[in-house]
Computed example of a mutant assay.
Amino acid sequence: MPKVADRSDHERVLGSLGDAIRVRRQALGMSQEALADAAGINRTHMGEVERGRRNISFMSMVKIAKAMDAKASDIIADAGL
């Protein structure tokens, strides 16, 4: 039976994903607000995602990726997940 992820695993995964989103956004020269607007996500929510404080839905991940002209799988790979 697989081990259930503990709290520190969740924080590590969400932090890695948030970092990957922020790095890609900055490389594109986008502000956090511009990315949030393009993805149809509240800017405050976007900030929490980038800080690893928000466990986003798969659909939100897809919207964020599309707003950066990427695939969700590319961002997940960038995060090392």
Score class of each variant (00 low, 15 high):
residue 12 R to H: 11
residue 71 K to R: 14
residue 81 L to D: 05
residue 59 M to I: 13
residue 49 V to H: 06
residue 33 E to K: 09
residue 49 V to C: 08
residue 69 D to E: 14
residue 11 E to T: 12
residue 28 L to V: 04
residue 72 A to G: 04
residue 23 V to D: 15
residue 56 I to M: 15
residue 71 K to A: 11
residue 56 I to G: 02
residue 20 A to Y: 05
residue 74 D to K: 02
residue 9 D to V: 13
residue 66 K to Q: 13
residue 54 R to D: 05
residue 36 A to P: 00
residue 9 D to A: 14
residue 24 R to Y: 11
residue 2 P to H: 06
residue 20 A to M: 03
residue 47 G to P: 01
residue 48 E to P: 04
residue 17 L to H: 03
residue 14 L to W: 01
residue 39 A to G: 04
residue 38 A to Y: 03
residue 4 V to C: 04
residue 18 G to L: 00
residue 10 H to V: 15
residue 79 A to Y: 08
residue 44 T to C: 10
residue 66 K to M: 09
residue 29 G to H: 05
residue 72 A to V: 07
residue 25 R to S: 06
residue 46 M to F: 09
residue 71 K to G: 05
residue 4 V to N: 05
residue 13 V to H: 02
residue 74 D to W: 08
residue 3 K to P: 03
residue 78 D to M: 07
residue 47 G to Q: 09
residue 50 E to G: 04
residue 47 G to W: 10
residue 47 G to V: 08
residue 64 I to M: 04
residue 54 R to H: 14
residue 28 L to G: 13
residue 26 Q to Y: 05
residue 58 F to M: 12
residue 58 F to T: 13
residue 22 R to M: 12
residue 62 V to C: 11
residue 65 A to T: 00
residue 76 I to C: 00
residue 80 G to R: 04
residue 39 A to K: 01
residue 12 R to N: 10
residue 37 D to A: 12
residue 11 E to Q: 13
residue 27 A to T: 09
residue 27 A to I: 05
residue 51 R to A: 14
residue 78 D to T: 04
residue 73 S to T: 12
residue 65 A to P: 02
residue 36 A to R: 00
residue 76 I to N: 00
residue 53 R to K: 15
residue 15 G to K: 00
residue 12 R to F: 06
residue 39 A to N: 03
residue 75 I to A: 00
residue 57 S to F: 06
residue 69 D to Y: 07
residue 16 S to A: 14
residue 63 K to E: 10
residue 52 G to D: 01
residue 17 L to G: 01
residue 19 D to L: 08
residue 35 L to C: 06
residue 67 A to G: 04
residue 58 F to H: 10
residue 23 V to L: 14
residue 66 K to H: 15
residue 68 M to I: 02
residue 57 S to A: 11
residue 34 A to T: 06
residue 80 G to W: 05
residue 28 L to K: 12
residue 66 K to E: 13
residue 66 K to V: 09
residue 72 A to N: 05
residue 27 A to N: 13
residue 5 A to S: 09
residue 63 K to S: 14
residue 78 D to K: 02
residue 80 G to Q: 04
residue 49 V to W: 07
residue 4 V to M: 10
residue 66 K to I: 07
residue 7 R to D: 12
residue 11 E to P: 05
residue 45 H to C: 11
residue 77 A to L: 09
residue 47 G to S: 09
residue 75 I to L: 14
residue 81 L to G: 08
residue 23 V to W: 08
residue 16 S to C: 06
residue 69 D to M: 07
